[in-house]
C-alpha cells in the first residue's frame, strides 16, 4: 500500500482503508476521470480537503505486451514498443533497438545515429507540447491546449513525411532506421524551429508567467529529493541532472555530435 502523507507522520495512525474513522471520507477517482488522462484508478482518503492517503489501482490498460514479446522476433516487436508510450514512440523504438544492438554488439552507421537523435528530440518537443497543454487544461484554462496542439501538429506533419505515421512511427529498427529522411525534412525542421522560437515567449506569457497558474502550481505536490530517489520513478532524471550538472544524461548526444 502506497501512503503519501503530508500531515500524518506516523502511517500506523491512518484509518483503515474503505472509509471509517471520524472526519475521514473515501472517494474513488477514475478509472474514467478527465484528470487522470488515461485509466488510473485512485482510492483517496480525505480529511477535509487534505489528501491523507492514496491507494492506486493499476492495470486498466495492461495489454500483456511482455507475454506477446515472448513469441515475437526482435524486429517484430518494435511496433509494440511504439504503442507503449505513444507520446514518445521514437524514444521507445530507440531504446528497444539500442538494447538489441548492444546484445548483438552491432555498431550502427553514424548517419542513422544522427537521424535517431533528431527524431528523438522532435518527439520530445511534441510530447512536451501535449504535456503543458493538458496541464493547463487540468487547472481550468482551455486556450493553451489549442496553442500547444498547433505546434504539435507541425511536428506531426514532419514525422508523417518521413515515417509515414503521425503517432506510432515504428521508424527505428535494430541496425539503424527504416529508411532515409524525406528530402524536405531539413527545410521543414528549420522553418519549424524559427516558428517555435517565436512562440516560446507566448507560452510563457500565457501559462508559466501567468500569476493564476503560478498560484495554482507553486508548492503543490512537492517531492523531496530523498523521497524521489526512494520511490524512484521517471523524475529521477531531474534529480540526476540537478546533482551533477547534466553530465551523464547528455553524454550520449555529445558522442553522436
Amino acid at each position: 500500500m502506497y501512503r503519501q502523507t503530508e500531515i500524518v507522520s506516523d502511517v500506523t495512525q491512518l484509518p483503515p482503508l474503505g472509509g471509517g474513522g471520524a472526519g475521514y471520507f473515501t472517494i474513488n477517482v477514475g478509472p474514467q476521470h478527465p484528470a487522470t488522462h488515461g485509466v488510473l484508478h485512485l482510492v483517496i482518503t480525505l480529511n477535509g480537503e487534505t489528501i491523507i492517503n492514496i491507494e492506486p489501482h493499476l492495470g486498466y490498460i495492461h495489454r500483456s505486451i511482455e507475454k506477446m514479446c515472448e513469441s515475437l522476433t526482435y524486429r517484430q516487436f518494435i511496433y509494440v514498443t511504439s504503442r507503449m508510450d505513444y507520446l514518445s514512440a521514437h524514444i521507445n523504438n530507440h531504446a528497444c533497438a539500442l538494447c538489441v544492438e548492444k546484445g548483438m554488439q552491432i555498431e550502427i552507421p553514424a548517419r542513422a545515429q544522427v537521424i535517431r537523435v533528431l527524431m528523438d528530440e522532435l518527439t520530445r518537443i511534441a510530447s512536451h507540447e501535449l504535456w503543458w497543454g493538458a496541464m493547463a487544461m487540468d487547472v481550468g484554462a482551455f486556450t493553451p491546449f489549442f496553442h500547444a496542439f498547433r505546434e504539435r501538429e507541425t511536428i506531426n506533419d514532419i514525422m508523417e513525411e518521413t515515417c509515414g505515421a503521425r503517432l506510432t512511427m515504428n521508424y527505428m529498427v535494430p541496425g539503424g532506421v527504416m529508411h532515409d529522411l524525406h528530402p524536405n525534412f531539413q527545410k521543414r525542421v528549420k522553418s519549424f524551429l524559427e516558428l517555435y522560437k517565436s512562440k516560446v515567449h507566448e507560452y510563457d506569457e500565457l501559462v508559466t508567467g501567468n500569476i493564476i497558474f503560478q498560484n495554482r502550481m507553486k508548492g503543490v505536490g512537492v517531492i523531496s529529493a530523498e523521497d524521489g530517489i526512494r520511490n524512484s520513478r521517471r523524475f529521477i532524471c531531474k534529480i540526476y541532472g540537478a546533482a551533477e550538472g547534466d553530465e551523464s544524461i547528455y553524454s550520449h548526444y555529445r558522442t553522436v555530435n
Binding site: 488515461g38 485509466v39 486498466y60 490498460i61 504503442r83 505513444y86 507520446l87 501535449l130 497543454g133 493538458a134 491546449f145 489549442f146 496553442h147 500547444a148 496542439f149 498547433r150 504539435r152 501538429e153 506531426n156 503521425r166 503517432l167 506510432t168
Partner: peptide, 15 residues
C-alpha cells in the same frame, strides 16, 4: 484509454 485518445485530442484541437 490509449494511443487513439491522443488522436482524439488532436481532432478536438486547433487544426
Amino acid at each position: 484509454t490509449s494511443c487513439c485518445g491522443i488522436e482524439m485530442m488532436a481532432t478536438a484541437s486547433a487544426k
